[in-house]
Nucleic acid binder design. Structure first.
Length: 151
DNA sequence: GCCAACGTTGGC
DNA sequence: GCCAACGTTGGC
């Protein structure tokens, strides 16, 4: 089993949205590196730290689980969607997504600021300079530590 | 709103 | 294949 961190802007899709819907597709990734991870490496049963970015308090806010492995992101085919891409077609899809299910909302979100003060987290990708990927793998240790801190 | 750090695009 | 210009991400 693998562990991941997924970033989202809470104004477009938050942990509360996921809690309410119970399960949702993780669409809109339009970056090849992230696409490759979604298509090839994110597996059913993998655990996900749900992270809010571009907001007042950037923070890890909960846990989700992958319930469906990579399949074509159909929102790319729809020119009225948030992230249309006319180059991607049903016959030759470019972009992929997975489905995730809500597991837990942290009672104590772990802010980016706090993470920087925790030495065991220093080698996490999120804290490194120039990190712009919307999802990336994290170690089991990091996953467990964030889960405990968030509780 | 600013800006650093990327990724992507397109001319050559 | 190089590289400048441009667009995006995301913290602050």
């Amino acid at each position: 089993m693998n562990y991941w961190l997924f970033k989202t802007e809470p104004t477009s899709f938050s942990i509360d949205d996921l809690k309410r819907k119970k399960r949702e597709h993780w669409d809109g990734v339009r970056n090849y590196q992230a696409r490759n991870l979604l298509r090839d490496d994110v597996k059913k049963g993998d655990q996900v730290i749900f992270y809010h970015s571009s907001c007042n308090v950037p923070a890890a806010v909960g846990i989700a689980e992958v319930v469906k492995e990579g399949y074509p992101d159909f929102t790319a085919f729809d020119k009225n969607s948030e992230h249309p891409d006319p180059k991607s077609t049903k016959e030759r899809p470019i972009w992929y997504m997975v489905d995730i299910a809500f597991k837990k909302k942290f009672s104590k979100p772990v802010s980016l600021h706090d993470m920087r003060t925790i030495s065991q987290l220093h080698d996490m990708r999120l804290l490194q300079k120039g990190n712009r990927l919307s999802l990336f793998p994290i170690s089991q240790k990091h996953f467990e530590l964030l889960s405990e801190l968030g509780a």
